[in-house]
Nucleic acid binder design. Structure first.
Length: 658
RNA sequence: GCCUCUGUAGCUCAGGGGUAGAGCGCUUUCUUGGUAAGAAAGAGGUCAUGGGUUCAAAUCCCAUCAGAGGCUCCA
């Protein structure tokens, strides 16, 4: 059995131990997120030497071959049958299994109501109980057209199957079919490749739901210029317990939604008057963000990066030269006209950094040049795309651009990857996949194909030399070059794209960058674009959800909450808090009216790592009583002992609290 | 941008063609309490905004703004 993502075989995987490096595998290609979930690895770094060790976890079988896949596929057909009874005039589109469930797209005469879904769900249970066989038949395209004569979407699919599938550039991507398979259960027949369960008896009427997610709009064939259909999602499992688990996980994800927590913890807010997609950082969010920034800034300085600072706008010609303007005009704020010049709110930092590079004559002795900036950029994202902090219109990138000689490229690239891994590791983010994004077949790219190949090969070679398992995904590149993305899987097993490293031969060409080589000839440098966090906003949004707001102590906006037992202990609490602040700890005193239990509850809900309770006993003995947000009561200790403990945890970026 | 849904007190939400409800929070009073909510009283709302229908609109309709779930997009 092979992992569909990396093509590493299961027997190979079994031979691996945590202390062995993985063989590399770069010939896998996949476009489906379903299959790509099946190969995960966890890395384990020794912080100092940055020596990488990999472990692979792998499922036993491909999703497409699994029983769940057939169950979900069959469920989709059962749902379509019930929907056609509810909406006899409905046109059916497609209904595939997806991760955790299935969907079916319909063209409906009116919006679906919750009553409709309740009816359909009930009807589905009935159909399942009817013990209907799934019968497969092979028919000719003409027969198929007769069967689906009232279903225009199916006719379109049949015609395409018969002609052989063709992509948007007219390249044939599938053989012309002379037979078409159709599946029938009960009264419903669908054009379908299968596979299905043999009989609806194999479906569990108590282990599915179509009401866990509201109906949604979806374009026919994913094309925004075509019909908007109604997509109904379902989730289906083998047992009711699995369904319950899944619904529970959804609840958990909702509960720790960074938009909810961000409000509750006072981290950030939005104002319609400022504009949508433009986050406002409140003091507690800003200190968290500032702490991250200061730390990364220092790590980067240690790695030989030079901080630079550039303005928020730039002349439009700068972005015409870089190519950003022509390629992304739709998703930029309109140019600002001033006198007879046009300016753009900067959508990317690279052109500004390039101009800094160009401001001096560079010798090969100066390279590599590494410019780093927390640069705020603005992109006019489609309004429907905006989402909390994870998709905004103004955000700050932990951006850096490296200008290197071709000889230095590989080592520099590897060093960037090591730095990225160090950063994630220090934050306790350890579950990753690495994705090599290659050039799109379409027209969203610039430059010379040979240079693209060179850049892509450099990335793959670096991955191999680092022993970094990776997979290739076509069409995921930036327009100016291929990239390596780090895909992070959080505690709820959700995937997020975080850091990115890109190799770029094109912008140096476009901006005619040069350095003087040893033989006194002017050569062209190669650029590396990189951002471990990507967007600070998005990254913090992900951190909030991953940690459920309970940040490691070094990042916690408030690290210590003083809880005086009675009002007469306020002075003592104030004095302690002042001393904590002198030691660099972020401490506050809760002088509210609540009793001690209430204050503890509040501090816990605020995810404050340490609570120091002070009452008569503490004043008398000159102690503080420590309680953790995790519920442990560590009892009385001297202030010095607590400060030593807190500083040790903070300085080591420990995830623990004691 | 497109489809669907939502917008009522600071927050979470109930209600619903005849001038507004709960819990939490907030204020005050009592309580000074030792490890996940002490008690009582009180304040607080042009029911997102603008228009329309109606004797009467928070309620129905339209538009706008904002939010949610998807789709498309993501340098």
């Amino acid at each position: 059995m092979f992992c569909p993502t990396c093509l590493l075989s299961r027997s190979d995987a079994q031979d691996l131990t945590t202390q062995q490096a993985l063989p590399t595998h770069d010939n896998a290609r996949t476009r489906t997120t379903v299959t790509s979930r099946f190969c995960f690895f966890v890395y384990d770094t020794h912080l100092h030497g940055l020596h990488l060790v990999w472990r692979l976890t792998m499922s036993d079988e491909r999703y497409e071959d699994s029983r769940l896949y057939r169950i979900r596929h069959s469920m989709a057909h059962v749902m379509a049958e019930a929907m056609l009874e509810r909406f006899p005039e409905a046109k059916i589109a497609i209904g595939p299994p997806i991760e955790d469930g299935f969907y079916y797209d319909f063209d409906l005469p009116r919006p679906v109501t919750d009553e409709d879904l309740a009816w359909v769900e009930k009807r589905m249970k009935k159909i399942i109980g009817g013990a209907h066989d799934f019968i497969v038949r092979e028919v000719s395209p003409d027969e198929a057209r007769e069967i689906f004569k009232d279903q225009p979407y199916k006719i379109e699919l049949i015609n395409d199957l018969e002609a052989g599938r063709v992509d948007e550039n007219g390249n044939q991507i599938a053989e012309a079919a002379d037979t078409i398979t159709v599946y029938t259960q009960d009264t419903f027949t669908d054009l379908c490749r299968g596979p299905h369960v043999a009989n609806t008896k194999e479906l569990n009427a108590k282990a599915f739901s179509i009401r866990f997610k509201p109906p949604a709009g979806a374009y026919w064939r994913g094309d925004e210029n075509r019909e908007q259909l109604t997509r109904i999602y379902g989730t289906a499992w083998e047992t009711p317990e699995e369904l319950k688990d899944y619904l529970h996980r959804l609840e958990e994800a909702k509960r720790r939604d960074h938009r909810v927590l961000g409000d509750k913890l006072g981290l950030f807010t939005f104002s319609p008057l400022v504009g949508k997609g433009l986050p406002l950082w409140k003091p507690r969010g800003a200190i968290l963000r500032d702490t991250l920034e200061r730390w990364l800034r220092q790590v980067q300085i240690d790695h030989g990066y030079d901080p630079v600072v550039t303005p928020h706008v730039g002349n439009l010609d700068l972005y015409r030269t870089s190519g950003h303007y022509p390629y992304y005009a739709d998703s930029q704020y309109n140019p600002i006209q001033v006198d007879d010049e046009e300016f753009l709110l900067k959508p990317m930092n690279c052109p500004h950094h390039i101009m800094i590079y160009k401001s001096e004559m560079r010798s090969y002795r100066d390279l590599p040049v590494r410019f780093a900036e927390f640069g705020t950029v603005y992109r006019y994202e489609q309004s429907g795309e905006l989402q909390g902090l994870t998709r905004v219109r103004g955000f700050t990138v932990d951006d850096a651009h490296l200008f290197v000689t071709p000889d230095q490229l590989l080592d520099e690239f590897k060093d960037v990857v090591r730095l990225t891994q160090y950063v994630f590791d220090a934050l306790g983010l350890t579950d990753f996949r690495a994705r090599v994004g290659t050039r799109d077949d379409g027209d969203k790219w610039v430059g010379d194909e040979a240079l693209w190949d060179k850049a892509t090969n450099a990335i793959i070679q670096a991955c191999e030399e680092l022993g970094l398992p990776h997979y290739v995904e076509e069409g995921e590149a930036a327009f100016y070059g291929p990239k390596l993305d780090f895909i992070f899987r959080d505690v709820l097993k959700r995937e997020w794209q975080l850091g990115t490293v890109q190799v770029d031969y094109n912008l140096p060409e476009r901006f005619e960058l040069e350095y003087v080589a040893p033989n006194n000839v002017r050569e062209r440098p190669v650029m590396i674009h990189r951002a471990p966090f990507g967007s600070l906003e998005r990254f913090i949004g992900i951190l909030i959800e991953h940690f459920d707001g309970a940040f490691p102590a070094w990042l916690a906006p408030v690290q210590v909450m003083m809880i005086p037992v009675a009002d007469r202990h306020f002075d003592y609490a104030d004095r302690i808090a002042a001393q904590l602040k002198q030691h660099g700890l972020r401490a506050e005193v809760d002088k509210g009216k609540a009793r001690i239990g209430g204050k503890i509850r509040e501090a816990r809900e605020q995810r404050i790592p340490w609570m120091l309770i002070v009452g008569d006993k503490d004043v008398e003995n000159q102690t503080v009583s420590l309680r953790l947000r995790t519920d442990e009561d560590l009892g009385a200790m001297s202030l010095e002992a607590f400060i030593a403990l807190a500083q040790r945890i903070i300085d080591t970026h420990s995830m623990a609290l004691q």
